[in-house]
Design a binder for these strands. Structure first.
Lengths: 190, 190
DNA sequence: AGGCAGACTTAACAAATGGTAAAAAGCGAT
DNA sequence: ATCGCTTTTTACCATTTGTTAAGTCTGCCT
C-alpha cells in the first residue's frame, strides 16, 4: 500500500526503495475526529505530524479567552509546533483536528533516528518546512491592510478546499473577524 | 576592528580566528539614506544583507497602489527576499532603508563560495534565518484579531527601538492601519 | 422520533476605522 | 532664514466591524 508521506517526499527527491519501509515503519498512523486535540498547549511538543487526510488547525486561547486560529494545515503538509519541537520550549499553541483527519506521527527521537540513518532526510525536511514557513508568511502578508470582506474573498480563492470543510468560527478567527461578521459577509457576497 | 556580523555569529557558535578575515572580506560594507532602495521588486534578489546600523523594511506596492510594509529588519538581523534569494524567482517585494542604515552585503555566489570553504556556515545561517522566520510569524499571529489600538500598543511594547526611528506611515502600513488612523490612535494613547 | 447542545444566522445599535480634504508641522535645499 | 515639498495632524462624515441578544438550524444522543 502506498504511503502518502513517501509519495510526497518523492516529489522533491528520489527515495531509495530500500528506505521506504524504514520511513513508513517509523510513522504511526492515527485517526482523529473533528475537535480532537493532537497536541495541547503547555507542554513541549515532541511530535511531528504529516496530514494524510483532513485539515488540522494550530490555535491559541488569547488573553480575552477567545480561540484564535493561527494556521490551517491541509493534506500533504507537515504540522508541528515548530518552535517548541525544534528548541524544546513549552508551546503556547495547540493542534486540533478542524475536521475528521488522518495523520502520520513521529516522535522527536524517532525522527532523529531516521535522520541518523538516512543522511539526506534532515536537509530535505528542513527545506520543506522552511518553504512552508515562507508560504505561511506570504499568506499573512497578502492579507495585510485588506478589509474583512476582501480577506475572506482571498481565503476563498486561495484555499477553497479548506473553506467548506471546517467550522465558520475557525475561519473567522483565522481571518481576524468575529463569527457574526463573517456570517454577515458570507451572506452579502452571494 | 570588530565586524558586527562576526560578533553576531559568535553568539551562536565559535568562529575560528582564521575564518574571521575570510567572512569579513567577503562582505561589502554599504551606507544608505532613509528612503534609499537596497533592492527593487521585479528582479531576482541576489544579495543577502546584514544590518549593522539602522532599520530596513521589506515592502510591496499592493493592487491599490498603496505601499505595505511586510517587515522591519533591525540591527543584527539578516535581510533578503528569501523566497527569491533561495529559489531564484522574481521578487514582488522591495528592500528600503526605513532610516539611515549601514549594512554588510554579500552576493549569492559570494555566499556559496563561503559555504564551500566553511562547512559549518550554511547550517548556521540556515538555522538563524529559520528562527527569524518563526519569530516573524509569531509576531503576526500575536496581532491577529486585535484592534488597531491594541496592535499599535503591542508594537510599542515589542519594538520601541523601531517605533521612534521610522516614518509613521511605514508603521501604519505594517500594522494594517491608515496613517490618519494611526495618528489619531497615537494622540488618544497619551 | 424527540429533545438537547452547539453552531450559525439575523438584527439593532454602538464603536472603531476608513475616506476625503485641509491645515499644520517638519525637513532639506537654496 | 525662507521657500517648497513631504509627512503628520486634525476634522467631519460614511462605512465597516464589533457587541449584545435572540432566533434558527443541524446533528447527535437517548
Amino acid at each position: 500500500m502506498p504511503n502518502p508521506l513517501i509519495n510526497f517526499l518523492k516529489l522533491f527527491r528520489d527515495i531509495p526503495a530500500d528506505d521506504e519501509g524504514l520511513i513508513a515503519g517509523a510513522m504511526e498512523h492515527r485517526t482523529y475526529k473533528e475537535g480532537d486535540y493532537l497536541f495541547k498547549a503547555g507542554k513541549i511538543c515532541r511530535e511531528l505530524f504529516f496530514v494524510c487526510e483532513g485539515i488540522l488547525r494550530i490555535k491559541v486561547i488569547n488573553e480575552n479567552g477567545n480561540e484564535v486560529t493561527h494556521f490551517f494545515i491541509r493534506e500533504n503538509k507537515f504540522c508541528s509546533i515548530l518552535n517548541s519541537f525544534n528548541n524544546q520550549v513549552v508551546a503556547q499553541e495547540s493542534i486540533q483536528a478542524a475536521c475528521n483527519a488522518e495523520v502520520l506521527a513521529i516522535s522527536r527521537t524517532g525522527l532523529d533516528t531516521l535522520y541518523s540513518r538516512l543522511s539526506y532526510l534532515k536537509p530535505l525536511i528542513t527545506e520543506i518546512t522552511h518553504q512552508a514557513l515562507l508560504d505561511k508568511i506570504a499568506v499573512r502578508n497578502a492579507y495585510l491592510g485588506q478589509d474583512s470582506t476582501t480577506r475572506y474573498r482571498m481565503f476563498l480563492m486561495r484555499q477553497p478546499e479548506i473553506a467548506y470543510r471546517v467550522p465558520l468560527s475557525d475561519i473567522a478567527s483565522y481571518l481576524g473577524i468575529t463569527p457574526q461578521s463573517l456570517s454577515r459577509i458570507r451572506k452579502n457576497i452571494r
